[in-house]
């Protein structure tokens, strides 16, 4: 399979045998300064909780029990399946998925538009997209909230134009959370797509256009496949951070429903102080996403092998 790969899709064996060496710096830095600490956290999830944070080094499955089983508020009812946390996870995945979709809908055409401008303009436009993100996320989110308030500028404008006769209620709804996530992560979608859309052999699509395909046919059949790696990369960069986001849900959504980010946050820096449970919740999240990522990488490699 993977061993028979040809040079399709930019993979090649030009540096055959050097792979591990080239990966070494990234492996080393992430391995030492993240993987080791994270392993510690995974171990913590199997230990006994210490009151007010910290762990006691005695093995325990209490954290996972708490995640999957409901034993009532006093902890002595017969165990039932605990749906709370599973629901929080599903809801977070749904929110992140929708955010990714919206970023794609706006981000892909924007990236394509930028990539097809003349070179100087292109450089400037890509900066135009990133410069707003020099302002702190908290400040931007506060400002966004101000804009979409019931009596805020957006509603005033919509009512002035006569499009609406009563304010659109967004603040403290999941629509506001969506908007916040979209706004937080948009360039994470635009930049990778731009990177792969900025093609040096645009002649290919021009040839297709010359052959009287419609613009959309060309876009779908020629362009989309070439920018696909960028779409995948952008989707990962929007989806995964959205899962753990806490500013948008808290500030714009009113924090009435836990998302994964605030649930885990609360265990380490909230009154609960339940490190093993926070660690278990994080371990479950990481395992799910990691499996998806690795499967994705494998299927890509297989695809290339077949091609």
């Amino acid at each position: 399979m993977a061993g028979d790969m040809q040079s399709a899709r930019g993979t090649s064996r030009l540096y055959q045998g050097k792979g591990p060496w080239l990966l070494l710096p990234a492996w080393a830095v992430i391995g030492i300064f993240l993987l080791l600490p994270v392993c510690l956290i995974v171990v913590y999830s199997f230990l006994t909780k210490e009151f007010h944070g910290g762990v006691i080094p005695e093995p325990s499955l209490a954290a996972y029990d708490q995640f999957f089983f409901d034993r009532g508020i006093f902890g002595d009812d017969p165990p039932r399946i605990e749906w709370n946390y599973i629901e929080i996870y599903l809801l977070s995945f749904l929110q992140a998925g929708l955010a990714t979709l919206f970023c794609l809908v706006i981000g892909l055409p924007s990236a394509w538009y930028i990539a097809t401008r003349p070179i100087r303009l292109r450089q400037m436009l890509i900066l135009v997209i990133t410069v707003p993100y020099w302002v702190n996320l908290l400040i931007r989110t506060i400002s966004l909230k101000f804009l979409i308030r019931d009596e805020g500028p957006m509603n005033a404008f919509l009512q002035w134009t006569g499009l609406l006769d009563h304010p659109l209620h967004l603040v403290n709804t999941s629509y506001a959370v969506q908007l916040g996530l979209f706004y937080s992560y948009l360039p994470f979608m635009v930049l990778p797509i731009f990177a792969s859309a900025e093609r040096f052999d645009i002649a290919l699509s021009e040839a297709s256009a010359d052959l009287y395909s419609t613009k959309w046919q060309t876009f779908r059949l020629i362009t989309l496949p070439t920018i696909w790696p960028g779409v995948v990369a952008g989707s990962i960069l929007v989806f995964v951070p959205s899962l753990g986001a806490f500013l948008a849900p808290n500030l714009l959504g009113g924090a009435k429903t836990y998302m994964i980010g605030s649930l885990i946050d609360e265990q380490f820096k909230g009154a609960a102080g339940n490190w093993p449970f926070g660690a278990a919740a994080a371990t479950i999240l990481m395992s799910v996403v990691l499996v998806v990522l690795i499967l994705n990488a494998r299927s890509q490699i297989k695809l290339k092998g077949a091609g």
Binding site: L34, L40, G278
Partner: peptide, 23 residues
């Protein structure tokens, strides 16, 4: 090789508070 992809993506998927406390 495919494990490497998971390792490179790891910083993305560890929740921030966990990275913070663990680091």
């Amino acid at each position: 090789r495919s494990i490497s992809f998971g390792l490179i993506g790891l910083p993305l998927l560890v929740p921030e508070i966990v990275t913070a406390v663990a680091s």
